[in-house]
């Protein structure tokens, strides 16, 4: 019942309708994919003219450009760009930190993942679903077709609270799987106890393109907004249970904000350097509005 309720909350027809006009474009997909709409390096049957090449026996005679032959006296055939699908792998964080607080981050994360999946499946790309906390679980390795959205959604709704965040380990494990190169969408708060450097190192090793969907809250950057975070407090990590005694004052708050900013800067620096994408999603805000702001002119190029 709980899963059904979660799915019902996730499945919002208006939300999906609003996403129908969005397109996710890859600059180039890796070869050996299915025929689809994404540009690929493969040359073959297609609609988009790519180049000419000298005719060799075996080439499709329908591709010979007779106008060139008349002018030059030599036989060339037209080469077309083959359009293939983009494999998208959703790596969703189901650690305890995603389920904490009054409006848990997982709600926005699942909705965003579901929305992206609907966009991906609508444009004939394939999507996979991987969940992680301290282990990596393969929920859907790869699926395609608009009609698979409900299946994907049900799998998302089944994700419940697990254990600690081990994002770096999960990325390493996923990178080690023999998956076709595609787009890895990481839906997480990126609060890995191993530290942001370990996460960045793992992402560097990953051969997929990356789209980071960072789930945050306003109180992350400004903990003074939290009504209880002042004075002498013992902060308990929701995942490890470890406590940190803090006397919160202006100096500590300022230092916290510096550290949190450095964390975000490190993530943004990685994204910028390695051509990845980064979406900072406010878990307390409207997911649709935030996605709409990302899809400029209805397109998001990754």
């Amino acid at each position: 019942m709980a899963t059904q309720a979660a799915f019902d909350a996730l499945f919002d027809p208006d939300f999906l309708t609003a996403l129908e006009r969005f397109r996710l474009h890859a600059k180039r997909v890796s070869p050996a994919g299915r025929h689809a709409d994404q540009a690929s390096r493969d040359r073959g049957a297609g609609l988009e003219f790519a180049d000419y090449k000298p005719y060799v026996p075996g080439d499709d005679l329908r591709a010979i450009d007779w106008n060139v032959y008349r002018r030059l006296g030599r036989v060339f055939v037209r080469v077309f760009e083959e359009r293939q699908d983009l494999p998208v792998y959703m790596l969703v964080d189901r650690s305890k930190s995603m389920f904490l607080e009054r409006r848990p981050r997982i709600d926005a994360g699942l909705k965003a993942a579901f929305g992206l999946a609907s966009i991906v499946l609508a444009q004939h790309d394939s999507v996979g679903l991987f969940a992680f906390s301290n282990t990596l679980e393969v929920k859907i390795k790869s699926t395609s077709g608009r009609n698979r959205l409900m299946t994907f959604g049900r799998q998302l709704a089944c994700l419940d609270e697990a254990h600690e965040t081990c994002l770096a380990d999960a990325v390493n494990r996923l990178a080690g799987m023999r998956l076709r190169r595609g787009l890895l969408v990481i839906v997480s708060d990126f609060f890995d106890p191993a530290g942001i450097e370990a996460v960045v190192a793992a992402m560097k090793r990953c051969r997929h393109r990356l789209l980071l969907l960072q789930l945050s809250k306003d109180a992350d950057a400004n903990p003074g907004m939290h009504k209880d975070l002042h004075g002498d407090v013992r902060l308990l990590d929701c995942e490890s249970g470890a406590g940190v005694d803090v006397t919160i004052g202006p100096a500590v708050l300022a230092r916290y904000q510096e550290i949190y900013q450095a964390f975000n800067d490190r993530l943004a620096g990685f994204v910028q350097k390695h051509g990845a994408g980064l979406i900072r999603l406010n878990a307390d805000g409207d997911v649709l509005e935030q996605l709409r702001a990302l899809f400029v002119s209805g397109r998001l190029v990754v």
Binding site: F191, L229, R255
Partner: peptide, 21 residues
């Protein structure tokens, strides 16, 4: 010490190292 559960103590631990309790 009022006990408060937070998503992570990663940043607080670093901040406290420089401004001890």
């Amino acid at each position: 010490h009022a006990e408060i559960t937070v998503p992570t103590t990663l940043f607080w631990a670093a901040a406290v190292r420089e401004a001890p309790v």
